[in-house]
């Protein structure tokens, strides 16, 4: 059975289209939904977890329709929203016990001990959550979500607001859960995390999926190499053969793509200088999901698609 499939899943808030005819098939994997803030990630998760009714289209989770068989869907999933909702006046164990009771778990104490141990919280289980760090609170939420052994786990921005070490630990746990056969549907706007840990990602822009694939294949779609440049002065209208414009990042670094970056660097340098631009730096690196995102969606702030015309006006403005 396919863990998650959506057919033209759509949500309107009034006249605003938050999710636009989404068609996804998620297998037994870690599936990442990527996109800038406001791209429709959370709305999608809310529909898949039965908390929001789709305006159009349908979605099946573990074979059950999210609108018509909400109860069956809720039995087979767990949902961890991004807010970090754990009771700080309760102990870690009490927080988990609440969920174990609400899920009607038999052999409760055993299960609670097991999920707390799984999330490395056993030694602090009887302390008030008030004394927990952000990473521990997030792990406690995962422990709550695991008491009934869900088939699909929905995580909305699981690492938001955490430090680097805590983030890494959360992802280690997510990978462990996947190895135990759980399907994990995760939203994030941290591209590097998705790059390392997701089997497949979907890139969402204005409620529409612009690409679905494994991170490595998505990166392969743009080019082998990325040349990042700091340039001022006149921009050329055209580029040397074998070099393509990718986009300009928010910090005014201009990115070019090429299948042979290190050889193209001197060519590009001469070309730019000949056209009257001043080159401050050029460097070659491997593409990241951020670059894929920039190529597909354009600036993350604007969230608008790349268009050739705009690029040319931008170049002219600079000269």
């Amino acid at each position: 059975m396919i863990p998650i499939e959506t057919h033209d899943l759509t949500k309107y808030y009034g006249s605003l289209c938050a999710v636009d005819h989404l068609n996804l098939q998620v297998g037994n994997e870690i599936f990442g939904l990527l996109g800038p803030n406001g791209s429709g990630k959370t709305t999608t998760v809310l529909m898949l977890t039965t908390l929001l009714r789709p305006t159009e289209g349908s979605a099946l989770v573990c074979g059950h329709d999210v609108a018509r068989e909400a109860q069956e869907v809720r039995r087979s999933i767990s949902y961890v929203p991004q807010d970090m909702a754990v009771d700080i006046k309760l102990t870690g164990r009490e927080n988990v016990t609440l969920f174990a009771k609400l899920y009607g778990i038999s052999r409760r104490d055993e299960t609670i001990d097991r999920v707390l141990a799984m999330m490395d919280l056993s030694s602090r289980a009887d302390d008030l959550v008030r004394t927990y760090s952000g990473g521990m609170r997030r792990r406690l939420e995962l422990a709550q979500a695991l008491v009934h052994e869900p088939k699909v786990l929905f995580l909305d921005e699981p690492t938001i607001g955490l430090d680097v070490a805590a983030r890494r630990k959360i992802w280690e746990h997510i990978l462990t859960l996947k190895s135990r056969g759980m399907t994990i549907f995760v939203t994030t706007h941290y591209m590097d995390e998705a790059d390392h840990s997701c089997d497949r990602v979907a890139i969402l822009d204005h409620g529409r999926v612009v690409a679905v694939d494994s991170p490595s294949r998505l990166k392969g779609r743009i080019a082998k190499d990325i040349i990042s440049a700091r340039i001022s002065g006149n921009y050329p209208e055209t580029l040397p053969e074998g070099v393509d414009f990718l986009g300009e990042r928010d910090d005014e670094v201009v990115l070019f793509s090429s299948d042979n970056g290190s050889e193209k660097v001197p060519v590009l340098f001469r070309w730019l200088e000949d056209q009257g631009a001043t080159v401050h730096s050029l460097s070659v690196r491997e593409p990241t999901l951020d670059d894929v995102f920039l190529a597909l969606v354009g600036s993350r702030e604007e969230g608008s698609g790349f268009d050739d015309h705009k690029f040319r006006t931008m170049l002219r403005r600079r000269s």
């Binding site: 809720r74 949902y79 929203p81 909702a85």
Partner: peptide, 13 residues
């Protein structure tokens, strides 16, 4: 506001 209700509403109970 704190997100508890979302978690509760996603439960089968």
């Amino acid at each position: 506001i704190l997100g508890f209700l979302n978690k509760f509403l996603a439960l089968p109970s």
